[in-house]
Design a protein around this nucleic acid. Structure first.
Lengths: 202, 202
DNA sequence: ATTATATACTAACGTTCGTTCGTTTACAAT
DNA sequence: ATTGTAAACGAACGAACGTTAGTATATAAT
């Protein structure tokens, strides 16, 4: 089973958009890379804009799967220590970071954020808000379980997650230039440790 | 004294690039807005790319002025409490955030980061690295003065500054859509407080 | 008064843009 | 065998792109 033309258009556009932005990439470039004529692209996508929409909604659906369902939370939190829970989430996030297509989607999101209201919505709601709300619930539960110090759960969520976003931005830029990312990865580890020290009891 | 044509080109481009990106804005759009013919623009700028370069270097020089010189640091740190020092820096940063042109420069920087190696360099060196190095020195000095707990200065810098960058990103997107930013501003205040609690002695 | 310089203009250049049209090809369903 | 459908194609559309050349005009320097 080989990759469909539509998928090849999708991944080629993903790659090109992430490097030069939507306006910086022409239909001719995309189709040349895919190996079809310009006119053939319109058998698969209504127009150029529809390719971007497709990419953004794909990211949206894909990212939604990364957070564990709230129902399963109590179970997970009971079974594991705070430290191992944080480390597991952190491993998960890192895996997402290392995925090449994930990096490209993130880049497109950043680059198109002021041109596309959908991009802004995804950043604000799906990335920021959803993640913070999830973590807020996690920390609330951990406080109720007396597993961590009784600090403001929302602030804990912010203090934990927001540095990660900036580190991810840094990571992405370095990766783009093929530079060494070991320091950023080290800082990410250190951040999780630092945060754990802040919240732990005693 | 009225604004020169070159400056009008500069600020018009700043405005348009920040909304639609470099590739999304044409010379004709810029000159139409400025009120001159396309050809006249080339009396002031070598080509389109030179306008972007000009904007980016302007930001670079402008941002360099925001951090106080290291020589003056000991004096400042002696005279003020840790809390008031943090709050002053925070006020300073906020003022920068609220400046309309500052917002536009920041947006261009984000939007062009993968198209322009200069943009990447500015983000990585001038924004991230310089700020962290400055704060690292600050925290080192504060630790030596026994004004804060003896934690890793670099990690303190990261923990303090990196959430601010993400909050700034959020702030900028909200501002772009004319939405309410009071929650983000509140979170910024809370972050400074939270951080102060983490580092203070006793 | 003249000359020089800066900055504006008109006109156009060659290229590329996104998209549409009508046609051909390949393959599956009848 | 035929018909239907999806997906490829060549060719072209008008519009917009960045940039250049040559020229006019206004201001300042001689």
């Amino acid at each position: 089973m080989t990759i469909s033309t539509k998928d090849r258009i999708f991944y080629t556009s993903l790659d090109l958009f992430s490097q030069r932005g939507f306006s910086g990439v022409s239909i001719r470039e995309i189709t040349r890379e895919v190996g079809i004529k310009e006119s053939s692209l319109y058998n698969h996508y209504r127009n150029k804009e529809a390719i971007l929409e497709d990419i953004l909604t794909f990211f949206r659906n894909d990212f939604a799967k990364t957070l564990p369902p709230i129902d399963a939370l109590d179970d997970i939190l009971q079974k594991s220590t705070v430290e191992s829970f944080l480390k597991a989430g952190h491993r998960n996030f890192k895996k997402y970071m290392e995925d090449e297509n994930g990096q490209k989607m993130w880049r497109i999101l950043q680059v198109e954020q002021y041109r596309s209201s959908l991009a802004r919505e995804i950043i604000l709601n799906d990335l920021f808000k959803t993640t913070i709300q999830f973590l807020e619930i996690v920390f609330s539960k951990l406080i109720a379980m007396k597993k961590i110090r009784p600090l403001n759960p929302k602030m804990l969520a912010i203090e934990y997650q927001y540095p990660v976003f900036t580190l991810l931005t840094e990571y992405n830029i370095l990766k783009f230039d093929g530079k060494d990312t070991s320091e950023v990865e080290f800082l990410l580890d250190q951040h999780v440790l630092f945060f754990f020290e802040t919240i732990r009891i005693g």
